[in-house]
C-alpha cells in the first residue's frame, strides 16, 4: 500500500521537474543561470488554463492523439516499478505490454500530426516512425537481457533478480543492455543526438514538429505524456544501474538520486554534443541494436544464468 502511494507520488512529482533539471544543467554548462527547475510545471499549469485553437483541417483524431499518448504513457509508468522492485500494475509478460503501450501512444501522436495536413508535421511523423521502428528491436533485446536471467518477462521479477552488488559491472551483458537502453531513451524521448528539443527550425525537428498545432490543454497533455515517457524509460535505466532495494526508505532516495543522475547525464550530453545528421540517426540506432544483440550473445556464452 505504502509502496503504491510512493509510486503514484513519484509519478506525479518527478517527471516534469526532471525536464527542468535537464534545462538547468544545460544552462549551467552554457554559463547561464537558466530557468527554475519547476519551469515545466508552471508551463503545463498555464497551458491547462488556456483555451484552444484548432486547424480547420483537423478531425476528432487530432483531439484523440494527445489523450491516447498521455493515457499510454501513464499506464506504462504504472507497469514499471519505481522506488521498489514491484509495481502496482505489474503482471506476467508486462515487458511486452509496456513496449506496445508506448507504441499505441506513438501511433496516435503520428496520426494526429498527419491530421493537420501540414508538410512539417508529416515530416516529423515520418521521421518518428522510422526511428521508432529501429529503436524497437534494441529496446526488446535490452529488456530480454534483463528478463532471461529472471526467467520471467515481468519487470518486477527481472529487477528483483539483478544482483545488488557490483554496480554496473555486475554482468557484462547488463552493461551492454544499459548502453543500448540509454540510446533508446535518447531516441524515444527525442533528445540530442537524435533530436534537438530546443531547435527553432521546423525542418530539423522530429518530436516538436509533430505537435506544432496542438495548444492549450491538448498541448499540456502532450507535455505531461512526454515527460512521463522520459521518466519511465529513465526508471528502467536506473533499475539496471542502481541496486534499488525492494522496500525501505533507501529505495525512494536511491531512485530519486538515480533519476536525477539520468537527467544530469542527458543534460551533459546535450551540452557537449551536437545532434547527428538525420541520415546518421538510423546507424546510431542500428548500433544500439547490435550492442544489445552482442549483450544477448554474451549472456548465453557465459552459460545461461
Amino acid at each position: 500500500m505504502v509502496d503504491g502511494l510512493v509510486h503514484v507520488a513519484l509519478l506525479i512529482l518527478m517527471p516534469l521537474p526532471m525536464l527542468g533539471l535537464i534545462n538547468r544543467v544545460k544552462s549551467i554548462a552554457a554559463g547561464r543561470k537558466g530557468p527554475p527547475i519547476l519551469q515545466p510545471v508552471y508551463d503545463v499549469v498555464k497551458l491547462l488554463q488556456k483555451g484552444a485553437v484548432y486547424s480547420r483541417t483537423t478531425t476528432w483524431l487530432f483531439v484523440a492523439g494527445p489523450i491516447v499518448a498521455l493515457a499510454s504513457s501513464l499506464l506504462a509508468a504504472l507497469i514499471v516499478p519505481l522506488a521498489s522492485t514491484t509495481s502496482p500494475f505489474g503482471f506476467p509478460a508486462d515487458v511486452f505490454v509496456f513496449a506496445y503501450l508506448l507504441g499505441v501512444g506513438r501511433f496516435f501522436t503520428m496520426t494526429a500530426a498527419l491530421d493537420t495536413g501540414s508538410a512539417f508535421e508529416g515530416m516529423g511523423a515520418s521521421r518518428e516512425a522510422a526511428y521508432a521502428a529501429l529503436a524497437e528491436p534494441a529496446l526488446f533485446l535490452a529488456l530480454m537481457i534483463v528478463c532471461i536471467p529472471a526467467h520471467s518477462a515481468s519487470f518486477s521479477d527481472a529487477f528483483a533478480s539483478i544482483p545488488a552488488a557490483g554496480g554496473l559491472l555486475r554482468h557484462p551483458g547488463l552493461l551492454l543492455a544499459t548502453l543500448s537502453l540509454g540510446v533508446v531513451l535518447l531516441a524515444e524521448a527525442s533528445r540530442i543526438p537524435v533530436d534537438d528539443p530546443n531547435t527553432h527550425l521546423e525542418l530539423t525537428m522530429i518530436h516538436e514538429v509533430m505537435v506544432l498545432d496542438h495548444g492549450g490543454p491538448d498541448f499540456a497533455f502532450i507535455q505531461i505524456g512526454y515527460a512521463l515517457k522520459f521518466f519511465v524509460l529513465g526508471a528502467v535505466l536506473v533499475h539496471l544501474v542502481l541496486p534499488i532495494p525492494a522496500s525501505g526508505w533507501m529505495a525512494p532516495v536511491l531512485f530519486v538520486a538515480g533519476q536525477a543522475g539520468v537527467a544530469i547525464t542527458v543534460g551533459i550530453i546535450e551540452s557537449f554534443m551536437a545532434r547527428l545528421r538525420l541520415t546518421r540517426v538510423p546507424q546510431f540506432l542500428i548500433g544500439a541494436c547490435v550492442v544489445a544483440a552482442v549483450g544477448v550473445l554474451v549472456l548465453f556464452t557465459g552459460g545461461r544464468p
Binding site: L48, K50, G51, A52, V53, Y54, S55, R56, T57, T58, T116, G117, S118, F120, L212, D213, G216, P217
Partner: peptide
C-alpha cells in the same frame, strides 16, 4: 477543461 473556454478554428500553422 475546455467547457467554458474559447475554442477557435484557424488555418494549420
Amino acid at each position: 477543461l475546455l467547457r467554458r473556454r474559447e475554442v477557435r478554428q484557424a488555418a494549420t500553422w
